[in-house]
Design a binder for these strands. Structure first.
Lengths: 216, 216
DNA sequence: GGAGCTTTGTAACAATTATCACTAAACCAG
DNA sequence: CTGGTTTAGTGATAATTGTTACAAAGCTCC
């Protein structure tokens, strides 16, 4: 589907030059996907780089036995470094990307990534900024896993989720939280119950409400 | 100190074009540092990007209380993505880089990084390959921390070290291993003793010899 | 060769996390 | 409304990792 230039201009006018915006409109593919839609899975070949317009995408690392660990979220105007490296080297994906809510995005074909890099300095900067941001995200993920105990990691994850949806109530199962923390559902249930007893959250089926755990 | 062009040509002739090699010789600074030399520490400003000629450099993440976690090693012809992002954004370092053995390297000033990227396609490719490699390294580090138990992580670390020095005997203290695994010395001692009882390693003060734990 | 430092060994115990086995709610579909 | 399915709660127990507290062995340097 063709993307409206004015729409792009509103969104990216400040970071991309006009020529690039035109090419984005011409060569990018607009996509609108449901929550839960799998944009990328390990082993899949990647032929395009996504740029998120709205919504959010969850990037997850999985091991061979199905255990998972949340790496980071992509939000508005973000792009994925993994797809960049994969595209530029025609390698397979090593991560899973899932729409975390209704998400709109532009899909940019591989061939343009490199071409635009020499053509538009704003694109080159965007690519490098993407690398840097994801690098920081990965370091933050490592910090969490390596230096914090599960209760703290759970709280950090709840905060991250509330920031992501910009609200204090959101839908999530204990199972999902367990996956993202690379632990079991039971452990998450127990820790959440503890938080509820401390009056820091309110639990319902498929839903968690945060109290003192601030949005930040 | 001025770098000999022929030396560079021998080492990088296959990946860098001649013009770039000349500039490298002209603008790069040669350094030869002892094992243990700290090339970079958190909070430090980074004004140059290193390219390793020989030896190896350990990249470590530290938390606020001095706990550490090994991220990856840099070896011959490697460069550091962290310094790239930092340089290109004049940000502070968020990691520690320590020479893991006697190490020779070229230090490339910030200003050239960007300049060469548009000027030499081989440099651009080098920069992107660096990002990709470090990205992979970080993912591998996350896998280790998130999905494996300490005994397996210890074995993996020993393997990595033996690969790094290309030998089966190397000098290291339990304390250092503990740091790199973000755990305590005692735990490492215990696990190592277990491996020794299984006949998989031989322990001495400051030294570990690997048996069935193959070099790979 | 002895004092002092660094490194290692280890027992005992504590804390954290994982797993198993059920029960009970909440929700959904016919 | 009912039976099936998904989600959550929880006790019991095991496994793993962390901590404390010493003792001893190896090295360095007078």
């Amino acid at each position: 589907m063709k993307i409206d230039f004015n729409f792009l201009h509103d969104k990216f006018g400040k970071i991309f030059e006009v020529g690039l915006l035109k090419e984005l409109a011409d060569f990018g593919t607009y996509m609108d996907v449901e929550e839960g839609f799998v944009l990328m899975r390990p082993g899949g070949y990647i032929r395009s780089v996504p740029i998120i317009l709205s919504g959010s995408v969850k990037i997850v690392r999985s091991d061979s036995e199905g255990k998972e660990a949340l790496l980071y979220y992509l939000g508005e105007k973000d792009s994925c470094a993994m797809s960049l490296t994969c595209c530029l080297n025609s390698r397979q994906s090593e991560i899973t990307a899932i729409a975390d809510s209704q998400t709109q995005l532009i899909s940019v074909p591989v061939s343009k990534i490199d071409e635009w890099m020499t053509k538009y300095s704003s694109w080159k900067e965007f690519v490098f900024m993407t690398y840097q941001k994801r690098f920081d995200d990965l370091l933050a993920a490592i910090d969490q896993i390596a230096f914090f105990k599960l209760d703290e990691r759970l709280i950090a994850l709840l905060k991250k989720k509330s920031r992501q949806c910009a609200c204090t109530v959101f839908n999530v199962t204990h199972e999902e939280l367990g996956n993202e923390l690379a632990t079991s559902r039971e452990v998450v249930s127990r820790l959440l119950k503890q938080l509820e007893r401390q009056g820091r959250v309110k639990l319902s089926r498929n839903k968690i409400e945060l109290f003192d755990i601030a949005l930040k």
